[in-house]
């Protein structure tokens, strides 16, 4: 009797596993399929692309790369450079100042601290689009259109990253360490830079990546502020590609543009996926 139950249980489990793995493999395929087609198509010439569907890559990858890289109307090398500049600086500012703000609230008691914290929490979820009208007007008045500053500097105030850092500090930084540093003769500022920041390294790394990716992918605000060709970032160029008459385009080149746009993030992700995924959870809700 028990043996029969045992056997039934084992079969049941086996069936369950088969079903589950099928679902997982299907979803994974769904996620990867479009990117796979992208890579395949980026390796095909325009003629090959017109001729029909193919699941296998063809030999035109580097031709397409050369054509895309040297395209006259869409200056993708410039776009990549601009995007790197904006995303890199934004990531550094966001990470550093979020940590600084979180530390300021975590380590010190001052009047209004609670109000300050509540304030940041309250504005955390307000989307940036809703102040875009005033933002564009203000930047236009200040002559800051076609400048990277309005894209980089707002990164100093990043409520979500702040919240992540605050939670991280609570879990890793006992106040005694700060006090020990005080006794050791460290100034408040150097305690933050030399003791607290190194302790926060894992959180900093995760947030550097996330804020870099967010800024790299950002389209809405940059599109409103940047219209000079040499200032455009990658997402704006992609939008430009979409609004162009694509039928006249070398489609191999188009695929290559798309590939180039997502490649930096793809590479980062391939190497750091584990810590990135860990960071997803720690960021929003404590489990």
């Amino acid at each position: 009797m028990i043996q029969r139950k045992n056997a039934a249980g084992r079969i049941h489990l086996l069936v369950a596993r088969v079903v589950v793995y099928t679902i997982l493999i299907f979803l994974s395929a769904l996620c990867l399929f479009s990117f796979y087609l992208l890579i395949v198509n980026a390796s095909r010439s325009n003629a090959q692309l017109q001729a029909g569907f193919s699941l296998l890559p063809q030999g035109n990858f580097f031709t397409n790369l050369k054509n895309a890289w040297n395209d006259a109307s869409i200056n993708i090398p410039r776009g990549v450079l601009n995007s790197f500049l904006v995303a890199g600086l934004t990531a550094v500012l966001t990470t550093y100042f979020s940590a600084l703000t979180a530390y300021g609230i975590h380590a010190y008691t001052f009047r209004g601290k609670k109000a300050v914290f509540t304030c940041i929490m309250a504005v955390m979820m307000i989307p940036p689009q809703v102040s875009a009208v005033g933002f564009v007007q203000l930047m236009t008045k200040l002559g800051m259109t076609n400048s990277f500053l309005p894209l980089i500097l707002p990164g100093i105030a990043a409520p979500v990253v702040f919240f992540y850092m605050k939670q991280y500090l609570e879990s890793v930084l006992p106040m005694e360490i700060v006090e020990a540093a005080r006794c050791d003769g460290s100034s408040e500022f150097s305690t933050f830079n030399r003791i607290v920041l190194p302790i926060m390294k894992p959180a900093l790394a995760v947030q550097l990546i996330f804020s870099f990716v967010a800024s790299w992918n950002n389209y809405f605000i940059p599109a409103l502020l940047l219209d000079k060709a040499e200032m455009k970032t990658v997402p704006i160029m992609i939008a430009q590609l979409r609004s162009a008459d694509y039928s006249k385009f070398d489609m191999g080149k188009v695929y290559m543009f798309i590939l180039l746009a997502i490649l930096p993030v793809l590479i980062v992700y391939i190497f750091l996926s584990r810590s990135i995924i860990k960071g997803v959870t720690a960021g929003s809700v404590k489990g």
């Binding site: 005694e176 006090e179 020990a180 006794c183 190194p198």
Partner: peptide
Amino acid sequence: IAMVFQNYALYPH
């Protein structure tokens, strides 16, 4: 002055 803390407060890094 120098101080020794209950939880040692060593700099972990």
